[in-house]
């Protein structure tokens, strides 16, 4: 195992993050505050409780997931697309590293950044609402697994993308609708029966549900199924990345 290479890639990626640490910190604080103004104060004042949880607190896990998923994808996809775009990827491809080491470096850094943003949102949210976390270890485990899985997905998007438009396509057209319709701001039980059934085909539902269970002990689907769903998603992404490096698809001629 070339641990020096993993560390080098990881630190190089993180240095870009630290270069813009102010922006990285301030933008989730502002967006979270805005969500609380709109959903918490304006709408939340008309909805008292959802499944026994005050609405302001109820949306916190969904809000964290929304940002963490989007950030993981954009950080990881940009992380590998940028070296492809400016040509510096040649160095990684000609170095004595295997796919696991390259992936650990890039995906690890992208997941770390989104984990940081997730924690900033959690901190900001706790300024607006009273939060108690019933299963803190499960909460951290769900958060880390989500960061890693979607960073892996972003890594695939970054390798697949041939231009900046394609880089934006998957997050905008696929992930945003899935996250919004996955119960970020509502409980699935609030939907008509038909849409409840449709929602169960949305993988993000299982993530948000499991994450919300870690906070409040209430969930739309059993927590075991949530954990299974994210584990399967993680493995599918990992297998895809392994296949990409094995075949050199869109990365080696």
């Amino acid at each position: 195992m070339n641990t020096a290479a993993i560390k080098a890639i990881y630190l190089n990626e993180m240095s870009r993050f630290f270069r813009t640490i102010g922006q990285s910190f301030i933008s989730p604080v502002i967006s979270t505050s805005l969500y609380f103004v709109v959903f918490g104060a304006a709408i939340g004042s008309r909805i008292q409780e959802v499944e026994g949880v005050p609405y302001g607190a109820f949306i916190v896990p969904g809000l964290i997931m929304l940002s963490v998923i989007m950030q993981s994808i954009s950080n990881a996809s940009f992380g590998i697309y940028f070296p492809k775009f400016i040509g510096t990827v040649f160095e990684v491809l000609s170095a004595p590293v295997n796919f696991m080491e390259i992936t650990l470096g890039y995906v690890g850094a992208a997941a770390t950044k989104s984990l940081f943003i997730g924690l900033v949102i959690l901190g900001t949210a706790s300024l607006f609402v009273d939060l108690t976390i019933e299963h803190p270890f499960a909460m951290v485990a769900f958060l880390i697994l989500t960061c890693l899985s979607f960073a892996l997905m972003g890594f695939i998007v970054g390798i697949w993308a041939k231009n900046f438009e394609q880089l934006q396509l998957v997050p905008l057209l696929i992930v945003t609708p899935l996250v919004f319709l996955g119960g970020s701001f509502y409980s699935v039980t609030m939907l008509p029966p038909f849409w409840q059934t449709v929602t169960h085909f949305n993988p993000v539902l299982y993530l948000i549900s499991g994450f919300r269970w870690a906070f409040f002990g209430v969930a739309d689907v059993p927590v075991g199924i949530s954990l299974g769903a994210i584990a399967i998603f993680f493995l599918v992404c990992l297998t895809t990345v392994w296949w990409i490096f094995r075949t050199g698809w869109r990365i080696r001629d």
Partner: peptide
């Protein structure tokens, strides 16, 4: 390489630390 493939905002010496690390040193 033939093209000047360098990250424009990176620091010169950090570039060298990255290259050394990639090669397991």
């Amino acid at each position: 390489p033939q093209e000047i493939n360098l990250e424009p905002f990176s620091i010169v010496e950090n570039n060298l630390h990255l290259s050394r690390g990639l090669f397991g040193k």
